[in-house]
Design a binder for these strands. Structure first.
Lengths: 205, 205
DNA sequence: TTTCTTATCCCTTAAAAAGAGGATTTTTAT
DNA sequence: ATAAAAATCCTCTTTTTAAGGGATAAGAAA
Protein backbone atom coordinates (compact mmCIF):
# COMPACT_ATOMS: atom_id res chain seq x y z
CA UNK A 1 0.00 0.00 0.00
CA UNK A 2 1.14 3.49 -0.83
CA UNK A 3 2.07 6.18 1.66
CA UNK A 4 -0.56 8.87 2.13
CA UNK A 5 0.52 12.42 2.98
CA UNK A 6 -1.65 14.19 5.53
CA UNK A 7 -2.15 17.76 6.79
CA UNK A 8 -4.42 18.70 9.68
CA UNK A 9 -6.24 22.00 9.98
CA UNK A 10 -7.64 22.58 13.45
CA UNK A 11 -7.50 25.41 15.94
CA UNK A 12 -7.49 23.04 18.91
CA UNK A 13 -3.96 22.28 19.76
CA UNK A 14 -4.86 19.24 21.81
CA UNK A 15 -6.64 17.68 18.84
CA UNK A 16 -3.67 18.29 16.56
CA UNK A 17 -1.46 16.62 19.13
CA UNK A 18 -3.88 13.74 19.40
CA UNK A 19 -3.98 13.08 15.70
CA UNK A 20 -0.25 13.49 15.31
CA UNK A 21 0.36 11.07 18.13
CA UNK A 22 -2.06 8.53 16.68
CA UNK A 23 -0.59 8.68 13.20
CA UNK A 24 3.03 8.88 14.27
CA UNK A 25 3.88 5.18 14.22
CA UNK A 26 2.11 4.53 10.94
CA UNK A 27 4.39 3.74 8.06
CA UNK A 28 1.65 4.30 5.54
CA UNK A 29 1.13 7.89 6.69
CA UNK A 30 3.38 10.81 5.90
CA UNK A 31 2.72 13.60 8.40
CA UNK A 32 3.12 16.95 6.68
CA UNK A 33 2.18 19.09 9.66
CA UNK A 34 -0.67 21.25 10.81
CA UNK A 35 -2.34 24.62 10.29
CA UNK A 36 -4.48 26.46 12.79
CA UNK A 37 -6.12 29.02 10.53
CA UNK A 38 -7.42 29.60 7.03
CA UNK A 39 -4.46 31.73 6.03
CA UNK A 40 -1.76 29.44 7.36
CA UNK A 41 -3.43 26.55 5.61
CA UNK A 42 -3.59 28.29 2.24
CA UNK A 43 -0.01 29.47 2.65
CA UNK A 44 1.09 25.92 3.35
CA UNK A 45 -0.70 24.58 0.29
CA UNK A 46 1.28 26.89 -2.00
CA UNK A 47 4.35 24.81 -1.32
CA UNK A 48 3.07 21.35 -0.43
CA UNK A 49 -0.10 19.55 -1.42
CA UNK A 50 -1.08 16.70 0.84
CA UNK A 51 -3.22 13.91 -0.47
CA UNK A 52 -5.59 14.20 2.48
CA UNK A 53 -6.49 17.14 4.69
CA UNK A 54 -8.16 16.59 8.04
CA UNK A 55 -10.28 19.67 8.45
CA UNK A 56 -12.02 20.92 11.57
CA UNK A 57 -15.41 22.40 10.80
CA UNK A 58 -15.12 25.42 13.02
CA UNK A 59 -11.81 27.21 13.17
CA UNK A 60 -12.58 29.69 15.91
CA UNK A 61 -14.36 32.50 14.15
CA UNK A 62 -13.44 31.24 10.72
CA UNK A 63 -15.27 28.57 8.84
CA UNK A 64 -13.71 25.30 7.85
CA UNK A 65 -16.52 24.97 5.33
CA UNK A 66 -15.52 28.04 3.33
CA UNK A 67 -11.91 26.91 3.47
CA UNK A 68 -12.93 23.50 2.21
CA UNK A 69 -14.62 25.06 -0.77
CA UNK A 70 -11.71 27.23 -1.78
CA UNK A 71 -9.22 24.38 -1.38
CA UNK A 72 -11.27 22.15 -3.65
CA UNK A 73 -11.45 24.93 -6.23
CA UNK A 74 -7.71 25.47 -6.30
CA UNK A 75 -6.53 21.94 -5.63
CA UNK A 76 -9.24 19.52 -6.72
CA UNK A 77 -6.91 16.56 -6.25
CA UNK A 78 -6.76 17.00 -2.50
CA UNK A 79 -9.20 14.86 -0.54
CA UNK A 80 -10.71 16.54 2.50
CA UNK A 81 -11.94 14.71 5.57
CA UNK A 82 -14.21 16.72 7.89
CA UNK A 83 -13.45 16.48 11.59
CA UNK A 84 -15.78 17.62 14.31
CA UNK A 85 -17.17 17.14 17.77
CA UNK A 86 -20.42 15.38 18.40
CA UNK A 87 -22.77 18.30 18.67
CA UNK A 88 -22.16 19.92 15.34
CA UNK A 89 -24.26 17.61 13.21
CA UNK A 90 -25.81 20.47 11.33
CA UNK A 91 -22.53 21.17 9.58
CA UNK A 92 -21.89 17.69 8.21
CA UNK A 93 -24.14 18.33 5.26
CA UNK A 94 -22.56 21.66 4.52
CA UNK A 95 -19.00 20.43 4.40
CA UNK A 96 -19.95 17.52 2.18
CA UNK A 97 -21.74 19.91 -0.15
CA UNK A 98 -18.58 21.99 -0.24
CA UNK A 99 -16.37 19.24 -1.48
CA UNK A 100 -15.33 17.16 1.51
CA UNK A 101 -15.01 13.43 0.89
CA UNK A 102 -15.93 12.34 4.35
CA UNK A 103 -16.58 13.05 7.95
CA UNK A 104 -15.13 11.71 11.16
CA UNK A 105 -16.07 12.60 14.72
CA UNK A 106 -13.41 13.53 17.21
CA UNK A 107 -14.17 10.54 19.35
CA UNK A 108 -13.06 8.25 16.55
CA UNK A 109 -10.63 5.48 17.33
CA UNK A 110 -7.22 5.13 15.74
CA UNK A 111 -8.52 2.44 13.44
CA UNK A 112 -11.48 4.47 12.31
CA UNK A 113 -9.30 7.47 11.60
CA UNK A 114 -6.86 5.39 9.55
CA UNK A 115 -9.64 3.70 7.63
CA UNK A 116 -11.17 7.08 6.89
CA UNK A 117 -7.88 8.54 5.67
CA UNK A 118 -7.09 5.62 3.39
CA UNK A 119 -10.64 5.47 2.08
CA UNK A 120 -10.79 9.11 1.04
CA UNK A 121 -7.20 9.02 -0.28
CA UNK A 122 -8.43 6.50 -2.83
CA UNK A 123 -11.11 8.88 -3.97
CA UNK A 124 -13.92 7.16 -2.14
CA UNK A 125 -16.04 8.74 0.56
CA UNK A 126 -16.06 7.90 4.23
CA UNK A 127 -18.78 8.60 6.79
CA UNK A 128 -18.43 7.66 10.40
CA UNK A 129 -21.44 5.65 11.50
CA UNK A 130 -22.32 8.24 14.13
CA UNK A 131 -22.26 10.95 11.50
CA UNK A 132 -24.47 8.89 9.22
CA UNK A 133 -26.98 8.37 12.00
CA UNK A 134 -27.08 12.07 12.71
CA UNK A 135 -27.55 12.83 9.04
CA UNK A 136 -30.46 10.43 8.81
CA UNK A 137 -32.10 11.91 11.88
CA UNK A 138 -31.83 15.37 10.41
CA UNK A 139 -32.96 14.26 6.98
CA UNK A 140 -36.64 14.26 7.83
CA UNK A 141 -36.45 17.38 9.89
CA UNK A 142 -34.66 19.59 7.39
CA UNK A 143 -36.81 22.58 6.65
CA UNK A 144 -36.24 24.56 3.50
CA UNK A 145 -37.15 28.21 3.71
CA UNK A 146 -37.45 30.66 0.88
CA UNK A 147 -35.37 33.84 0.84
CA UNK A 148 -38.30 35.92 2.00
CA UNK A 149 -39.35 33.51 4.71
CA UNK A 150 -35.89 33.47 6.14
CA UNK A 151 -35.81 37.25 6.13
CA UNK A 152 -39.15 37.50 7.88
CA UNK A 153 -38.17 34.82 10.36
CA UNK A 154 -35.10 36.77 11.33
CA UNK A 155 -37.10 39.93 11.93
CA UNK A 156 -39.67 38.01 13.95
CA UNK A 157 -36.94 36.55 16.13
CA UNK A 158 -35.58 40.03 16.68
CA UNK A 159 -38.90 40.98 18.16
CA UNK A 160 -40.47 42.97 15.34
CA UNK A 161 -44.23 42.84 14.85
CA UNK A 162 -45.86 42.18 11.50
CA UNK A 163 -46.51 45.88 11.13
CA UNK A 164 -42.88 46.75 11.71
CA UNK A 165 -41.63 44.06 9.36
CA UNK A 166 -44.03 45.17 6.65
CA UNK A 167 -42.70 48.72 6.92
CA UNK A 168 -39.14 47.46 6.86
CA UNK A 169 -39.34 45.32 3.74
CA UNK A 170 -41.93 47.49 1.96
CA UNK A 171 -44.73 45.00 1.63
CA UNK A 172 -48.23 44.80 3.01
CA UNK A 173 -48.91 43.52 6.53
CA UNK A 174 -50.97 40.77 5.06
CA UNK A 175 -48.01 39.57 3.08
CA UNK A 176 -45.88 39.37 6.17
CA UNK A 177 -48.72 37.57 7.84
CA UNK A 178 -48.81 35.01 5.05
CA UNK A 179 -45.09 34.38 5.39
CA UNK A 180 -45.63 33.98 9.10
CA UNK A 181 -48.36 31.42 8.52
CA UNK A 182 -46.20 29.52 6.07
CA UNK A 183 -43.38 29.49 8.57
CA UNK A 184 -45.68 28.12 11.26
CA UNK A 185 -46.89 25.39 8.95
CA UNK A 186 -43.42 24.48 7.65
CA UNK A 187 -42.14 24.11 11.19
CA UNK A 188 -45.41 22.60 12.35
CA UNK A 189 -45.14 24.97 15.27
CA UNK A 190 -48.02 25.92 17.51
CA UNK A 191 -46.99 29.55 17.69
CA UNK A 192 -44.08 31.89 17.22
CA UNK A 193 -42.51 31.03 20.55
CA UNK A 194 -42.01 27.39 19.63
CA UNK A 195 -41.08 28.32 16.07
CA UNK A 196 -38.27 30.60 17.23
CA UNK A 197 -37.00 27.97 19.62
CA UNK A 198 -36.83 25.38 16.85
CA UNK A 199 -35.22 27.78 14.41
CA UNK A 200 -32.50 28.77 16.85
CA UNK A 201 -31.84 25.17 17.79
CA UNK A 202 -31.60 24.20 14.14
CA UNK A 203 -29.23 27.10 13.72
CA UNK A 204 -31.35 28.67 11.01
CA UNK A 205 -31.12 31.97 12.83
CA UNK B 1 8.96 19.97 42.33
CA UNK B 2 6.69 17.06 43.11
CA UNK B 3 5.14 14.73 40.62
CA UNK B 4 1.46 15.35 39.92
CA UNK B 5 -0.80 12.43 39.02
CA UNK B 6 -3.33 13.12 36.31
CA UNK B 7 -6.46 11.49 34.93
CA UNK B 8 -8.37 12.72 31.90
CA UNK B 9 -12.11 12.33 31.40
CA UNK B 10 -13.18 13.05 27.85
CA UNK B 11 -15.28 11.27 25.29
CA UNK B 12 -13.16 12.53 22.42
CA UNK B 13 -10.50 10.02 21.77
CA UNK B 14 -8.38 12.43 19.78
CA UNK B 15 -8.28 14.86 22.68
CA UNK B 16 -7.25 12.14 25.10
CA UNK B 17 -4.47 11.18 22.71
CA UNK B 18 -3.45 14.80 22.38
CA UNK B 19 -3.16 15.38 26.09
CA UNK B 20 -1.41 12.08 26.66
CA UNK B 21 1.07 12.86 23.95
CA UNK B 22 1.72 16.34 25.35
CA UNK B 23 2.24 15.15 28.90
CA UNK B 24 4.17 12.01 28.02
CA UNK B 25 7.66 13.42 28.22
CA UNK B 26 7.03 15.36 31.43
CA UNK B 27 8.82 13.98 34.44
CA UNK B 28 6.66 16.00 36.80
CA UNK B 29 3.48 14.37 35.50
CA UNK B 30 2.31 10.87 36.31
CA UNK B 31 -0.22 9.77 33.72
CA UNK B 32 -2.85 7.58 35.36
CA UNK B 33 -4.96 7.08 32.26
CA UNK B 34 -8.30 8.15 30.89
CA UNK B 35 -12.03 7.63 31.23
CA UNK B 36 -14.62 8.27 28.56
CA UNK B 37 -17.78 8.22 30.65
CA UNK B 38 -19.19 9.08 34.05
CA UNK B 39 -19.32 5.45 35.14
CA UNK B 40 -15.85 4.48 34.03
CA UNK B 41 -14.50 7.57 35.77
CA UNK B 42 -16.22 6.80 39.08
CA UNK B 43 -15.14 3.17 38.83
CA UNK B 44 -11.55 4.26 38.30
CA UNK B 45 -11.64 6.57 41.31
CA UNK B 46 -12.56 3.71 43.63
CA UNK B 47 -9.06 2.34 43.18
CA UNK B 48 -6.90 5.35 42.31
CA UNK B 49 -7.26 8.99 43.17
CA UNK B 50 -5.35 11.36 40.94
CA UNK B 51 -4.33 14.75 42.23
CA UNK B 52 -5.74 16.45 39.15
CA UNK B 53 -8.54 15.44 36.81
CA UNK B 54 -8.86 17.02 33.39
CA UNK B 55 -12.57 17.01 32.77
CA UNK B 56 -14.40 17.65 29.54
CA UNK B 57 -17.57 19.64 30.08
CA UNK B 58 -19.75 17.61 27.79
CA UNK B 59 -19.36 13.87 27.74
CA UNK B 60 -21.70 13.03 24.90
CA UNK B 61 -25.11 12.92 26.47
CA UNK B 62 -23.73 12.99 30.00
CA UNK B 63 -22.70 16.07 31.87
CA UNK B 64 -19.17 16.68 33.05
CA UNK B 65 -20.64 19.23 35.40
CA UNK B 66 -22.72 16.73 37.35
CA UNK B 67 -19.73 14.39 37.45
CA UNK B 68 -17.57 17.20 38.74
CA UNK B 69 -19.98 17.80 41.58
CA UNK B 70 -20.17 14.18 42.68
CA UNK B 71 -16.41 13.74 42.50
CA UNK B 72 -15.84 16.77 44.74
CA UNK B 73 -18.38 15.40 47.21
CA UNK B 74 -16.71 12.00 47.46
CA UNK B 75 -13.10 13.05 46.95
CA UNK B 76 -12.71 16.68 47.98
CA UNK B 77 -8.93 16.44 47.73
CA UNK B 78 -9.00 15.96 43.96
CA UNK B 79 -8.53 19.11 41.95
CA UNK B 80 -10.57 19.32 38.79
CA UNK B 81 -9.60 21.27 35.71
CA UNK B 82 -12.39 21.93 33.21
CA UNK B 83 -11.55 21.35 29.58
CA UNK B 84 -13.65 22.56 26.71
CA UNK B 85 -13.83 23.88 23.20
CA UNK B 86 -14.21 27.55 22.46
CA UNK B 87 -17.90 27.83 21.98
CA UNK B 88 -19.09 26.53 25.32
CA UNK B 89 -18.49 29.64 27.41
CA UNK B 90 -21.80 29.33 29.16
CA UNK B 91 -20.61 26.25 30.99
CA UNK B 92 -17.47 27.72 32.49
CA UNK B 93 -19.45 29.27 35.31
CA UNK B 94 -21.36 26.12 35.99
CA UNK B 95 -18.34 23.88 36.32
CA UNK B 96 -16.61 26.36 38.60
CA UNK B 97 -19.73 26.55 40.75
CA UNK B 98 -19.66 22.78 40.95
CA UNK B 99 -16.20 22.55 42.37
CA UNK B 100 -13.74 22.80 39.51
CA UNK B 101 -10.53 24.68 40.27
CA UNK B 102 -9.95 25.95 36.78
CA UNK B 103 -10.70 25.99 33.14
CA UNK B 104 -8.59 25.47 30.05
CA UNK B 105 -9.66 25.64 26.43
CA UNK B 106 -8.79 22.86 24.06
CA UNK B 107 -6.65 25.12 21.95
CA UNK B 108 -4.28 25.56 24.88
CA UNK B 109 -0.57 25.13 24.30
CA UNK B 110 1.53 22.56 26.09
CA UNK B 111 2.89 25.22 28.41
CA UNK B 112 -0.51 26.54 29.32
CA UNK B 113 -1.78 23.08 30.06
CA UNK B 114 1.19 22.30 32.29
CA UNK B 115 0.89 25.60 34.12
CA UNK B 116 -2.80 24.96 34.67
CA UNK B 117 -2.21 21.46 36.02
CA UNK B 118 0.52 22.53 38.42
CA UNK B 119 -1.43 25.57 39.56
CA UNK B 120 -4.57 23.66 40.48
CA UNK B 121 -2.55 20.81 41.98
CA UNK B 122 -1.31 23.31 44.56
CA UNK B 123 -4.86 24.20 45.47
CA UNK B 124 -4.94 27.43 43.54
CA UNK B 125 -7.27 28.20 40.69
CA UNK B 126 -6.38 28.59 37.03
CA UNK B 127 -8.35 30.36 34.34
CA UNK B 128 -7.21 30.52 30.75
CA UNK B 129 -7.19 34.10 29.56
CA UNK B 130 -9.68 33.30 26.83
CA UNK B 131 -12.01 31.79 29.40
CA UNK B 132 -11.68 34.84 31.62
CA UNK B 133 -12.53 37.14 28.74
CA UNK B 134 -15.59 35.12 27.91
CA UNK B 135 -16.66 35.15 31.54
CA UNK B 136 -16.38 38.90 31.72
CA UNK B 137 -18.38 39.35 28.55
CA UNK B 138 -21.13 37.17 29.97
CA UNK B 139 -21.00 38.75 33.40
CA UNK B 140 -23.16 41.71 32.47
CA UNK B 141 -25.55 39.69 30.44
CA UNK B 142 -26.21 36.93 32.95
CA UNK B 143 -29.87 36.81 33.76
CA UNK B 144 -30.99 35.12 36.94
CA UNK B 145 -34.39 33.50 36.76
CA UNK B 146 -36.44 32.15 39.61
CA UNK B 147 -37.54 28.53 39.64
CA UNK B 148 -41.01 29.46 38.55
CA UNK B 149 -39.88 31.82 35.84
CA UNK B 150 -37.65 29.18 34.34
CA UNK B 151 -40.49 26.70 34.42
CA UNK B 152 -42.85 29.12 32.72
CA UNK B 153 -40.19 30.08 30.18
CA UNK B 154 -39.75 26.47 29.20
CA UNK B 155 -43.45 25.99 28.65
CA UNK B 156 -43.66 29.20 26.66
CA UNK B 157 -40.82 28.05 24.43
CA UNK B 158 -42.62 24.76 23.89
CA UNK B 159 -45.50 26.72 22.46
CA UNK B 160 -48.00 26.60 25.32
CA UNK B 161 -50.28 29.58 25.86
CA UNK B 162 -50.79 31.26 29.22
CA UNK B 163 -54.02 29.36 29.65
CA UNK B 164 -52.39 26.03 29.04
CA UNK B 165 -49.48 26.79 31.32
CA UNK B 166 -51.84 27.93 34.06
CA UNK B 167 -53.71 24.64 33.83
CA UNK B 168 -50.47 22.70 33.85
CA UNK B 169 -48.95 24.25 36.94
CA UNK B 170 -52.24 24.83 38.76
CA UNK B 171 -52.14 28.59 39.08
CA UNK B 172 -54.26 31.41 37.72
CA UNK B 173 -53.73 32.70 34.20
CA UNK B 174 -52.93 36.10 35.62
CA UNK B 175 -50.08 34.59 37.58
CA UNK B 176 -48.60 33.07 34.48
CA UNK B 177 -49.07 36.41 32.80
CA UNK B 178 -47.13 38.12 35.58
CA UNK B 179 -44.28 35.67 35.21
CA UNK B 180 -44.34 36.33 31.50
CA UNK B 181 -44.12 40.06 32.07
CA UNK B 182 -41.27 39.64 34.53
CA UNK B 183 -39.43 37.49 32.00
CA UNK B 184 -39.86 40.15 29.34
CA UNK B 185 -38.53 42.82 31.64
CA UNK B 186 -35.60 40.72 32.89
CA UNK B 187 -34.54 40.00 29.34
CA UNK B 188 -35.47 43.47 28.21
CA UNK B 189 -37.17 41.76 25.31
CA UNK B 190 -39.79 43.37 23.12
CA UNK B 191 -41.91 40.26 22.98
CA UNK B 192 -41.84 36.52 23.42
CA UNK B 193 -40.24 35.88 20.05
CA UNK B 194 -37.10 37.82 20.92
CA UNK B 195 -37.16 36.49 24.46
CA UNK B 196 -37.13 32.88 23.29
CA UNK B 197 -34.33 33.60 20.84
CA UNK B 198 -32.20 35.12 23.59
CA UNK B 199 -32.97 32.33 26.02
CA UNK B 200 -32.04 29.60 23.55
CA UNK B 201 -28.87 31.40 22.56
CA UNK B 202 -27.90 31.82 26.21
CA UNK B 203 -28.65 28.14 26.61
CA UNK B 204 -31.15 28.76 29.37
CA UNK B 205 -33.56 26.46 27.60
C1' DT C 1 -46.16 25.91 -23.09
C1' DT C 2 -47.74 24.64 -18.99
C1' DT C 3 -47.06 23.75 -14.27
C1' DC C 4 -45.08 24.71 -9.83
C1' DT C 5 -43.11 27.74 -6.64
C1' DT C 6 -42.65 32.10 -4.69
C1' DA C 7 -44.22 36.35 -3.44
C1' DT C 8 -47.71 39.28 -3.15
C1' DC C 9 -52.38 40.86 -1.45
C1' DC C 10 -57.16 40.71 0.84
C1' DC C 11 -61.15 39.45 4.47
C1' DT C 12 -63.05 37.87 9.04
C1' DT C 13 -63.17 36.32 13.78
C1' DA C 14 -61.44 34.71 18.03
C1' DA C 15 -57.68 34.12 21.00
C1' DA C 16 -53.62 35.60 22.98
C1' DA C 17 -50.21 38.76 24.38
C1' DA C 18 -48.49 43.36 25.68
C1' DG C 19 -48.76 47.39 28.55
C1' DA C 20 -50.48 49.74 32.48
C1' DG C 21 -51.73 49.74 37.00
C1' DG C 22 -51.98 47.56 42.00
C1' DA C 23 -52.20 44.02 45.87
C1' DT C 24 -51.62 39.90 48.98
C1' DT C 25 -49.38 35.87 50.65
C1' DT C 26 -45.50 32.72 51.10
C1' DT C 27 -40.65 31.73 51.28
C1' DT C 28 -36.05 32.66 52.22
C1' DA C 29 -32.25 34.81 54.22
C1' DT C 30 -30.21 37.78 57.79
C1' DA D 1 -38.13 38.69 64.18
C1' DT D 2 -38.13 41.07 60.24
C1' DA D 3 -36.93 42.58 55.86
C1' DA D 4 -36.39 41.14 51.12
C1' DA D 5 -37.54 38.19 47.38
C1' DA D 6 -40.67 35.23 45.11
C1' DA D 7 -45.09 33.74 43.96
C1' DT D 8 -49.62 34.54 43.78
C1' DC D 9 -53.93 37.10 42.13
C1' DC D 10 -56.70 41.06 40.20
C1' DT D 11 -58.77 44.82 36.44
C1' DC D 12 -58.72 47.23 32.15
C1' DT D 13 -57.27 48.57 27.32
C1' DT D 14 -54.94 48.06 23.11
C1' DT D 15 -52.26 45.60 19.98
C1' DT D 16 -50.84 41.51 17.87
C1' DT D 17 -51.34 36.68 16.54
C1' DA D 18 -53.65 32.59 15.06
C1' DA D 19 -56.77 30.26 12.14
C1' DG D 20 -59.92 30.07 8.58
C1' DG D 21 -60.86 31.26 4.07
C1' DG D 22 -59.22 32.80 -0.93
C1' DA D 23 -56.79 35.23 -5.03
C1' DT D 24 -53.29 37.07 -8.45
C1' DA D 25 -48.82 37.98 -10.73
C1' DA D 26 -44.01 36.83 -11.78
C1' DG D 27 -40.45 33.68 -12.47
C1' DA D 28 -38.33 29.16 -12.68
C1' DA D 29 -38.42 24.60 -14.11
C1' DA D 30 -39.95 20.82 -16.85
Amino acid sequence: MNVVSVLIVDDHYLVIEGVRSLLQGEKRIEWLGHATSTESCLAFLKHHQPEVILMDINLGNESGIALCKSIKEKYPAIHILGLSTFNQQSFIKKIIENGASGYVLKNATKNELLTAIFTVSMGRSYMSSDALQLLRKQENKTIILTRREKEVLEFIAEGLTNNEIAAKIFVSVTTVDTHRKNLLSKFQARNIASLVKMAVQMELI
